[in-house]
Design a protein around this nucleic acid. Sequence first.
DNA 1: ACTGAAATGTTGATAAATCAACAATTATAA
DNA 2: TTATAATTGTTGATTTATCAACATTTCAGT
Lengths: 199, 199
Amino acid sequence: MTQHDRRIDKTQKALKSALIKLMEEKDLPHITVTEIVKKADVNRGTFYKHYEVKEELLEATIQDVIKSLIQAYRHPYLNKERFTIKDLSASKIKLFEHVAANADFYRVIMLHPSVLPGFQNRLCEVLKKLSIQDLKFIPNTGTIDVDLQASYQSHALFGMIFEWVKGGFKYTPEHMAQQLLEILSNQPFSSGYHTMPNK
Amino acid sequence: MTQHDRRIDKTQKALKSALIKLMEEKDLPHITVTEIVKKADVNRGTFYKHYEVKEELLEATIQDVIKSLIQAYRHPYLNKERFTIKDLSASKIKLFEHVAANADFYRVIMLHPSVLPGFQNRLCEVLKKLSIQDLKFIPNTGTIDVDLQASYQSHALFGMIFEWVKGGFKYTPEHMAQQLLEILSNQPFSSGYHTMPNK
DNA sequence: ACTGAAATGTTGATAAATCAACAATTATAA
DNA sequence: TTATAATTGTTGATTTATCAACATTTCAGT
């Protein structure tokens, strides 16, 4: 049972943060390990104690963000026996706070997508899986293709995030969540989930 | 010749930053060492390797800020044989960047002065000494009391900083510097230093 | 005044990060 | 191409930070 040593977290966090900032300027092949450790203010030898190559650091960085994303999305589920329609509405709220907390990373993804090819789709896939889990709690007449609906919702969420990041984070996470709720309730043919939960 | 180990800088910086943030909430006697190390994300034992008591940490924090202030103010002097009137005008520019870089600290000073009694005056004294050094380069007819003039200028600078901090740093450091230059050139009976440097 | 909880200082063993130096490889430019 | 510089992995000795545990002391509430 290996125990937590906060020094490990600190250096890894510094290295990841440094890599993200460098990726806002250039793509991975042009980034050297020396540059990373310099920006992270860490000895070069320390880098090699944690990672063999910079690609490994990048993958760890991505895993961190995805893990954080899932955790933020699922936050309303925590310690809940039953999942109400109100939880569903709130389930996206923490999502925007997650994006804000990882602003540097999302700036790279949205503004320089070529630096991390295919990651935008990877992000949508994660969102889709999360959406599918949500949809299990929704009464379904049976005529709706869950994959289609989940893809619809996940890409819609992505679109909001995309616009938010591209616009330079002009709004607060709370405001973004509020906007989402209003959009959901104003959809054409909407049955008004959050206003008529007992239909 | 003592060698620099960046770990020392990191932990001390973390401890100082944590203390300042805590001082925005309460005054020193109510702050515990345990709180400081928790916010700094540092082991408690590590604290005692650097400081005996929290007051020592506070004094080190203050010394850091004052040292940074002096260095920022004197920045235009660097590598200069002769000191022109233009350097004088610019000598306050780095000052605002210093304040912005130490925003948390100045928030405490300006918004909760009772937490650090007497420090506002201490700050003005430092500014006055710096002003006096500036004034040595100004042609003086001999009728002006240098202490009076320096006190005038240092408190004026303090006033601008005070207003800036209290207003929540609504302007950029560059804008503040620009404002100062305009104020200087619009003073009643001003001889217009920076517009007529060859008088 | 009493009691449980929190904070304080200190300890020793362990793990991590540091620095400097090194040879080898890879870029960069003349 | 060749020379020069920069980057790369790796090393070992040293310093620092970590953790957990401990006995005291201080604090807060009854």
